[in-house]
Nucleic acid binder design. Structure first.
Lengths: 222, 222
DNA sequence: ACAAAAGTGTTCCTTCTACACCCATGC
DNA sequence: GCATGGGTGTAGAAGGAACACTTTTGT
C-alpha cells in the first residue's frame, strides 16, 4: 500500500499575555515519547468529528474556556514522516488568542498544563516549529486585523490594548498616537461609557471590541 | 475505535492569469463520485512522503512545471466528515501562483486538465470552498507581499505586473502611480536593462523579481 | 502626422511621527 | 503640591491620488 493512511490529530497553540509576556499553554508529557518534555496540548480527532470541532473540544478540555472568548483559527498542517516516532501522524495545528484567564487551567483535564514563555524552545515533536509559526502568524495579523482585542478581556483600556501590541511585537509604541489611531479607526473599538483607574493617574475609558474584521489602513510594525 | 484514521490527500489550487482573467487548473473527473464534474487536481500522499513533497509531485505530474517557476504555499486543511462520500479523507490544500505557461498541461498525466475561470462554481467535493479560500488568500497576499511577480514570466514589464493586480483585484489602477510605487519599492522589482515593445507605443523596460519578501509599505486595495 | 502606451513632474490631501501641552487621579 | 498615566493639538514628513505633460514607438 502506497497510500498515506494516517492518524489525524489537532495541536493547539494557545497564546495569551500574562505578566507582560507572550505565553503559550503547554503540557508536560506523561508518556513516551518525549516523556517529561513540554508539548503543545492536543489530541486525536474523533470519528465523524470535524477538524474545527475537535480543536474546539480540546481547547475546552485543556482550558475550560469557551473558544468564543478570544480568537480561533486554523494555523497549518504538519505531516513530515517521522515527526512522531510512533507512526504516521498528521497534525492540524490551530491558533487561539486568548485573554489572560482568571483560573482556567486548574480545573481542567490536563493536570500538568501551564502557561510558559512563548519564546522558550525545547518542545516535544516538531512543536517548536509549530509554535514559532503561530507566534509569527499572530504578529502579522495584528497589523491588518483588530485581533489584538482577542488578548483582552471584554472591557479594556487603550493602554491595555497597546500593551498587547508592545508585547507581541517586542516594541514600544507612542501612547498618544496609538490612542488616536485606535479610537478613530472605524469599528476597531467602541466606548462603553465606563472608566477605571488601573494604577495611578487619570482614569481611562473602557472599550469593547468593534465590529470590524479588517483594519483599513493597517497598523504597521515600526 | 474512536480515532480518526484517515486517508490524506493533497489538492492543488493552481492559479494563473490567461487572456486577462484569473484562471484555475481543473480536471474533469473520470470516475465516481462526481463523475464528469470539474475538480481540483490532487491525489493521495504516498507512504513516507512529506505533505509539501506530495503537493510538488502532483504539481509536476499535472502541469509538467517546476514548482519554483511561481510561488507555492500551504493553503489550509479540510476534513469535514462526509466531504468525500467514499470515506474519511482529510485533504491538505496547496496554493500555487504560476505564470501563464507556454504549453504545460498538454504533455502531462492529466489528459483532461484545463484552465478554467476561477469564479465558476460547480466543482466536485468541497472544492468550491477550497478554491474560494485560495483566491481570497491570493488577493490578500498581493497587498503586503511581492507575490504578484509569481504570475509573471522571469522578465516582465510594469504594465504586465499591473495587469496582475487589476485582474486579481478586479480593479483599475492608475498606470502612472503604479509604475512609481513598484519601481521605488525596495526589492520589489529589478531592471534587467532590456526593453520590449509589447503592442503599440513606447517600449517598456523589462524587470525581474527583486529579493524582497514583504512590501513596506503595502500596496492596499482601493 | 497621429494614436497609443511608457514614464516623469507636480499638486493636493490623508496619514504617520514626534512632541508640547492639558486633564484627572493617588499619594 | 507632585508624580503618573490619560488624552488632545499641532507642525513637519512621508506617502497616496489625481492628472498635466513629455517620450518613444507602430502605422
Amino acid at each position: 500500500m502506497t497510500l498515506y493512511m494516517a492518524a489525524v490529530t489537532v495541536d493547539l497553540v494557545l497564546l495569551t499575555i500574562r505578566r507582560g509576556a507572550l505565553q503559550v499553554l503547554l503540557v508536560r508529557r506523561g508518556i513516551e515519547p518525549f516523556l517529561g518534555q513540554w508539548a503543545l496540548p492536543g489530541g486525536f480527532v474523533h470519528d465523524d468529528e470535524d477538524l474545527d470541532v475537535a480543536a474546539a473540544r480540546e481547547l475546552r478540555e485543556e482550558t475550560g474556556v469557551d473558544p468564543t472568548a478570544g480568537h480561533f483559527e486554523q494555523l497549518a498542517t504538519y505531516g513530515t514522516p517521522g515527526r512522531d516516532p510512533r507512526g504516521r501522524v498528521v497534525t492540524v495545528a490551530y491558533l487561539a488568542l486568548l485573554p489572560d484567564l482568571p483560573a482556567p487551567v486548574a480545573g481542567s483535564d490536563a493536570a500538568h498544563a501551564e502557561w510558559r514563555p512563548a519564546d522558550d524552545p525545547g518542545l516535544a515533536f516538531d512543536h517548536d516549529r509549530i509554535l514559532a509559526d503561530g507566534v509569527e502568524r499572530a504578529r502579522a495579523k495584528l497589523e491588518y486585523s483588530p485581533l489584538a482585542t482577542a488578548f483582552c478581556p471584554p472591557e479594556f483600556t487603550v493602554a491595555e490594548l497597546r500593551g498587547v501590541y508592545e508585547t507581541v511585537w517586542r516594541t514600544r509604541l507612542d501612547p498618544r498616537n496609538f490612542h488616536r489611531k485606535v479610537t478613530t479607526a472605524e469599528g476597531f473599538v467602541e466606548p462603553t461609557g465606563h472608566s477605571v483607574t488601573r494604577d495611578r493617574g487619570r482614569p481611562a475609558q473602557l472599550f469593547r471590541r468593534g465590529p470590524a474584521t479588517l483594519l483599513h489602513p493597517p497598523l504597521l510594525r515600526p
